[in-house]
Simulated scan of single mutants.
Amino acid sequence: MMASRIAAAGAAAGAAVLALSAPAFAHVTVQPEGEAAKGGYAVVDFKVPNERDNASTTKVEVTFPADQPLASVMPQPVQGWDIKVTKSTLDKPIESHGRKITEAVSKVTWTADGDGIRPGFFQKFPVSVGALPEDADQMVFKAIQTYSNKEVVRWIEVPQEGQEEPESPAPVLELSETEDDHGHGASDSSDSSGSADSSGASGASSEKGSGDTGSAAGNTAAAGSSSDGTDTTARVLGIAGIVVGAAGVVYGVFAGRRRGTA
């Protein structure tokens, strides 16, 4: 009885260890570099991990939502990958910077021209996008990942709020709110800064005036000191000259006496 209990406990502990040591399930995701604000432009990274131990990821396809067309989609070159941008005609044209857009990017495909994403590694695929929707909180991008052994994984299941994450969730980009009062805040800050600068400038002017007065006084004192120093130097040189002259006379007298004695 005791042996069976110990065996059961050991089995449970072993299962727990295996569960804890199992690698976390990773999937294709999309994250902005910085902020993805509604109505703005952003650079987003599609992060693709390799989940296989015996194959490399050789192809990644990302489909852009047809109901949220983007006027600008520009992928960044990625070393070791060829990029293909597919455009489709819009059912309803959109306007961007005063011009009408009749087609938009519907898919971007990255194909490896080498080893691709090897086991144990991941790769980021940056894309500049905009203008982002103003009336949505998120954008869903469906992705397809192809391995070197011809296996295809479809990351296309849309996560639902309040439900568990699906087995193969689609990448979701969360959009942040636009700071409408940012401009006003900047203006107010500039105004207060301007006021501070004005008062600072006034203070600086006052300090400069005081400094000028002090400088004038300092210059006068310096001039006086210079004059005194010059007079002193002249006196010292004059006395030294007299001493040298007297020494010369004495030397001449003694020299004359020696000659006369000789």
Score class of each variant (00 low, 15 high):
63 T>V: 14
102 T>G: 02
40 G>T: 09
8 A>P: 00
223 A>K: 14
261 T>P: 03
162 G>M: 04
256 G>Q: 06
217 A>M: 08
89 T>Y: 07
97 H>V: 02
218 G>E: 04
16 A>D: 13
73 V>Q: 09
230 T>V: 14
177 E>A: 09
110 W>D: 01
203 G>A: 15
76 Q>I: 13
37 A>Y: 09
185 G>A: 06
111 T>G: 05
206 S>A: 14
150 K>S: 12
187 S>W: 14
252 G>V: 14
209 G>N: 09
183 G>C: 03
197 D>Q: 07
258 R>V: 15
43 V>D: 02
120 G>K: 10
30 V>F: 01
151 E>F: 08
91 D>I: 08
175 L>E: 13
216 A>P: 04
177 E>K: 15
81 W>K: 10
96 S>G: 01
225 S>C: 01
262 A>N: 14
159 P>K: 06
66 A>M: 10
224 G>K: 11
162 G>C: 08
213 T>C: 04
125 F>V: 03
256 G>S: 10
227 S>M: 12
215 S>A: 14
19 A>C: 08
240 A>T: 14
162 G>I: 01
136 A>F: 00
61 E>M: 10
165 E>T: 12
90 L>V: 05
221 A>T: 13
220 T>M: 08
2 M>T: 12
231 D>V: 09
71 A>V: 00
148 S>G: 11
107 K>G: 04
62 V>L: 04
100 K>M: 11
87 K>I: 04
116 G>R: 07
17 V>M: 12
232 T>W: 01
150 K>P: 03
197 D>N: 11
202 S>A: 15
140 V>K: 02
111 T>S: 15
22 A>P: 04
117 I>Y: 03
149 N>W: 02
27 H>W: 06
259 R>G: 09
105 V>S: 02
54 N>C: 04
112 A>T: 02
176 S>N: 13
127 V>H: 03
29 T>A: 09
198 S>R: 10
108 V>W: 01
64 F>V: 14
253 V>M: 00
207 E>Q: 15
32 P>I: 10
240 A>D: 10
228 D>A: 15
254 F>C: 11
117 I>T: 05
127 V>F: 04
200 G>T: 08
244 V>N: 15
142 K>I: 05
262 A>I: 11
255 A>M: 13
194 G>M: 10
221 A>V: 12
9 A>T: 06
254 F>W: 06
27 H>G: 08
61 E>G: 05
7 A>V: 11
204 A>E: 05
94 I>L: 06
16 A>T: 14
233 T>N: 03
181 D>R: 06
223 A>M: 07
182 H>S: 11
